[in-house]
Amino acid sequence: MTERRVLLHTTRIPVRWGDMDAYAHVNNTIYFRYCEQARVEWLEQGGYMVSIDEDEGPVIINAACTFLIPVTYPATVIVRAYAGAPGRSSVMNWYEIGVEGDDRIYAEGSAKVVWMNHASGKSVPLPEALRKRVEN
Rank of each mutant, 00 (worst) to 15 (best):
E3Q: 11
E3T: 13
R4P: 12
R5C: 02
R5Y: 06
R5K: 15
V6N: 09
V6R: 15
V6F: 09
V6I: 15
L7E: 15
L7V: 11
L8D: 02
H9V: 01
H9E: 15
R12G: 04
I13C: 08
P14M: 04
P14K: 07
R16G: 11
R16W: 03
R16F: 05
R16M: 10
D21H: 06
D21Y: 05
H25R: 05
V26N: 03
V26G: 04
V26A: 08
N27F: 04
N27G: 11
T29W: 00
T29C: 04
T29N: 08
I30E: 12
F32R: 02
R33G: 14
E36P: 09
E36H: 13
E36A: 12
E36V: 07
Q37Y: 10
Q37V: 13
A38W: 07
R39L: 06
V40N: 08
V40Y: 11
V40F: 12
W42T: 09
W42C: 13
L43E: 05
G47F: 09
G47I: 07
Y48N: 05
M49R: 14
S51D: 14
S51T: 11
I52N: 10
D53L: 10
E54G: 02
D55W: 01
G57Q: 07
G57T: 09
V59G: 10
I60P: 03
I60M: 09
I61G: 14
N62A: 12
A63C: 03
A64I: 01
L68W: 04
L68D: 09
I69K: 15
I69H: 14
I69P: 01
V71A: 10
V71Y: 06
T72D: 03
T72Y: 00
Y73K: 05
P74N: 13
A75G: 09
A75Q: 08
T76M: 06
T76C: 12
I78Y: 07
V79Q: 10
V79K: 09
R80S: 15
R80F: 04
Y82N: 07
Y82P: 02
Y82S: 05
G84Y: 05
A85I: 03
P86N: 06
P86C: 11
G87D: 12
S89E: 05
S90Q: 10
S90L: 03
S90G: 03
M92E: 14
N93C: 12
W94G: 01
E96Q: 14
I97V: 15
I97N: 03
V99I: 14
V99C: 09
G101M: 08
D102R: 07
D103N: 09
I105Q: 07
Y106E: 08
Y106P: 01
A107I: 05
A107C: 11
A107M: 10
E108P: 00
E108W: 00
E108H: 05
G109R: 01
S110M: 09
V113R: 00
V113D: 03
V113T: 14
V114N: 01
V114G: 02
M116F: 02
N117L: 03
H118N: 09
A119D: 12
A119C: 01
G121W: 01
S123N: 07
V124L: 11
V124R: 06
V124Y: 00
L126S: 02
L126D: 00
L126Q: 04
L126H: 05
P127E: 08
A129S: 15
A129C: 01
A129E: 15
R131A: 13
R131L: 04
K132S: 10
K132R: 15
N136P: 02
N136K: 13
N136L: 04
